[in-house]
Simulated scan of single mutants.
Amino acid sequence: MAAFLSKCMLDFFIAFGVVLGGTMLAGISSVITLDPPVHRMLTVAEQIKIWAMVAAIGGTIDPIRAIETHFQDGHISPAIQQILYIVCAFVGAHMGTTLIQWICRGGTSG
Rank of each mutant, 00 (worst) to 15 (best):
G59K: 09
A56K: 04
I100W: 06
I76M: 13
T98H: 06
S30C: 06
Q81M: 03
D35S: 08
T23K: 03
R105M: 10
Y85W: 07
I14C: 04
M9N: 09
T98W: 13
F12S: 04
C88M: 12
A66R: 09
I50D: 08
A66M: 10
I67G: 04
V18C: 05
V44W: 00
G74S: 06
A55P: 14
L42T: 15
G107F: 09
P36Y: 04
F16I: 13
T108Q: 05
F90A: 09
V19W: 01
G106F: 12
Y85G: 05
D11Q: 03
G27T: 10
G96D: 11
M53F: 02
T97A: 02
P78E: 06
Q47Y: 14
Q47S: 12
L20V: 15
V18A: 02
T97K: 13
C8T: 14
G74L: 07
A2S: 14
S30I: 07
C104P: 04
Y85R: 09
V54Y: 00
F71I: 15
I100Y: 06
L42S: 09
I103P: 08
I14K: 00
G27H: 04
I32G: 01
G107W: 13
I80R: 03
Q81V: 15
A26I: 00
D11K: 01
G58C: 03
A3S: 14
H39Q: 10
T60R: 02
H94E: 12
T60P: 09
S29H: 05
T43P: 02
V91Y: 01
V87M: 10
T43N: 11
V19H: 02
A79P: 15
H70R: 06
G107Q: 13
T60Q: 08
M95V: 15
W51A: 00
S109Q: 08
A79M: 13
V87T: 11
V44D: 00
Q81I: 13
S109C: 01
V44C: 01
G59W: 04
T33N: 07
S29I: 12
K49G: 03
F13L: 06
A45V: 13
V87E: 02
A45R: 10
Q82V: 11
P36V: 02
A26H: 00
G92H: 00
V31P: 05
S109P: 05
C8K: 01
L10A: 11
L5R: 01
V31L: 09
T33C: 04
P63E: 05
P78W: 06
R65S: 10
P37F: 01
L42P: 12
T60Y: 03
S30D: 10
D62E: 08
A15P: 14
I50N: 08
